[in-house]
Every structure is written in structure tokens, then in C-alpha cells.
């Protein structure tokens, strides 16, 4: 296989929040720690984790739009260079784009057309939008509608259209298909697949493993703020090719593999155990798991588990 250029390389990324509780007692909540993801050109990588594991913060961290009380750690490399706040400001909306979950992310009082053009009225932007809409079979009238007037089917295409106004090299899709019918999901996913096939790197953030496996090239499993495994989508065909006990548990929870679930719930940020966050729910857990665990290469993928 030809070596593809790395678009995004996130190393040991972390996000923590400062919070005041009971008066002036300040606590730091490490919502994300030890997050590692790489995305190559033309590749679609899915970050899969359950709700409340801090996935959206990853997207916001890459774009530099975390809330003011959040602190970011680790390194984000984009296109071979460190992604500084200055570069983030320059690149977001143009080379690095976000596709949000729903039309709640659109201004309810601004017409679709001018909203996608970010208020610009020049000929070039208009022509560009017309072309994008044509590509997605959206009628020109849609540009004159307000977000509340869109039908469910139009929503997604409009949201994806927002990404194409720039020259996206990295597309971040944050839960782009919540509560959608499977047919619809496939259609939305095909839009992202298309973007990847045209050469952009796509980072799909989702809680739906099944959906991710259908379209993504690689799947990064995310648990309680930590990436526990980085595997090719094909590794999920059998339990044996997976590396981390949590990934295996996810595999067993898929409908075609028996719908089995494991006991317990994902730990809340404040009650994280030392070492492996999955430790308390893991049948292989040993004393070693309570130490710092390295992210290491195993059979072409990566895993954060001492037993793999």
C-alpha cells in the first residue's frame, strides 16, 4: 500500500475543566486524557465512544473553540506542522471544517444561502454555493429558506454543504446522524465517504459502532476520555483480531454477535481509576493495569492494554 500523507496527528491530547464546587473549592476535571488519533489523506477514521465520553470536545479542541474554562494538553499536528491557536484561527472553516449534528447549529433567523456563504455576497461565493447545491440535488429555492423550513432530508445535505464552501482537507463530523433511519444514515455517510475519496481526511465522531464499521477505514475506540484501541475496520470482523478487552466487549454487543453487554457503566470523570479506565469492568484486570499504560503497536494497530 502506498504511504499516504498524514493530515492530522493527535498525540497524548487532553482536555480538562476547572470547576468551582461548594464555594471556592476549585477542582480540575480531566474529561479527556491520553487521546491519540491519526488521520491520513483520503482516509475516514471513526472515533467511537459512548455518550458522555467527551467526544465532541475532541472536535472542539482541534478547531480551537473549547470553552474558556477548558485547558488543552498534548499536541495536535496538522499537515506536518504543529497546530497552534493562530493556525487554528486561519484554517478553521476553510481547510479544517466541522459538520455539526443538527440544524440547531444553524442561525434560526438567517436564510440558508447567505448563512452557508457566511454572509458573503460576491459572485464567486454565489457560484460556488450553486454548484455545491447542484451536486447535492438541492434546489436553488432552498437557499432562500430558513433553517426551520428544511425537511429532514435536506437538513443533512445543507449541513454537509457548509463544509464545502472552503477547501476542506480535514472534515470533522460530530455525530452527524443522531436518531436517523438506517437508510438515511447510509446516505449521509456516503457524502462523507465521497469527501474522503476526493482526498480529504475525514474524522467521524460517533457512538454508533455499526455505522462506523460500514464506512470508515479505521476505528478508534474511545472509553472514558481515553483512546484504548486503534484498529482497521476489518479487524472488527472477528473478536480475535481485536486487541483491547473493551473493543471486544463492544464487538460482542453488536446485534449480529449476540447482543451481549457487560456489567457496570463508564466511570464518571471524578471517579476515574488509576491506570486503565476500563480496569474495574475488565475480567483480565491485574495489578499492572493500575499503572500508567503505554499506547503500543500490536498487529498493525495500536492498543492501550498490557495484556494484548
Amino acid at each position: 500500500m502506498k504511504e499516504k500523507k498524514t493530515v492530522l496527528n493527535i498525540r497524548d491530547f487532553s482536555v480538562s475543566f476547572e470547576q468551582y464546587e461548594r464555594g471556592f473549592h476549585k477542582t480540575v476535571l480531566p474529561v479527556i486524557r491520553n487521546l491519540d488519533v491519526t488521520v491520513h489523506e483520503g482516509e475516514m477514521v471513526a472515533v467511537v465512544g459512548s455518550s458522555g465520553s467527551g467526544k465532541s470536545l475532541l472536535a472542539h479542541g482541534i478547531l480551537g473553540i473549547l470553552p474558556y474554562n477548558a485547558t488543552m494538553g498534548g499536541e495536535i499536528w496538522y499537515d506536518g506542522e504543529l497546530l497552534t491557536p493562530k493556525r487554528q484561527k486561519m484554517l478553521r472553516g476553510n481547510e479544517i471544517v466541522l459538520v455539526p449534528q443538527s440544524i440547531a447549529f444553524l442561525d434560526p433567523l438567517m436564510k440558508i444561502g447567505s448563512q452557508i456563504r457566511k454572509g458573503k455576497k460576491d459572485k464567486a461565493s454565489k457560484a460556488r454555493l450553486d454548484k455545491i447545491f447542484e451536486g447535492y440535488h438541492l434546489k436553488e429555492e432552498v437557499q432562500g429558506l430558513y433553517p426551520f423550513e428544511l425537511s429532514g432530508g435536506m437538513n443533512r445535505r445543507v449541513l454537509v454543504s457548509t463544509a464545502l464552501m472552503g477547501n476542506p482537507k480535514l472534515v470533522i463530523a460530530d455525530e452527524p446522524t443522531p436518531g436517523l433511519h438506517m437508510d438515511m444514515v447510509r446516505r449521509v455517510m456516503s457524502h462523507f465517504r465521497e469527501l474522503a475519496d476526493k482526498g480529504a481526511g475525514v474524522l467521524l465522531i460517533t457512538h454508533d459502532l455499526e455505522q462506523a464499521l460500514e464506512v470508515a477505514d479505521r476505528v478508534v475506540v474511545f472509553y472514558a476520555g481515553t483512546t484504548v484501541e486503534d484498529a482497521a475496520a476489518s479487524d472488527f470482523q472477528a473478536q480475535e483480531t481485536l486487541r483491547h478487552p473493551y473493543s471486544k466487549a463492544l464487538w460482542r454487543a453488536l446485534p449480529q454477535n449476540g447482543f451481549q453487554f457487560i456489567k457496570g457503566t463508564q466511570p464518571y470523570v471524578k471517579e476515574l481509576p488509576d491506570g486503565c479506565p476500563f480496569g474495574p469492568r475488565c475480567e483480565y484486570c491485574t495489578a499492572e493495569c493500575q499503572k500508567e499504560i503505554a499506547y503500543r503497536e500490536v498487529q498493525g494497530g495500536r492498543v492501550r492494554c498490557v495484556h494484548a
Binding site: 472542539h60 478553521r92 472553516g93 471544517v97 466541522l98 440547531a104 447549529f105 442561525d107 457566511k118
Partner: peptide, 11 residues
């Protein structure tokens, strides 16, 4: 959310 998204779009 829409202001957050506008920010993400570089406005």
C-alpha cells in the same frame, strides 16, 4: 450552538 458553529467556520 449556532454561534459555536459560526466560530468553527472561522467567522
Amino acid at each position: 450552538d449556532y454561534v459555536l458553529f459560526a466560530k468553527a467556520r472561522g467567522e
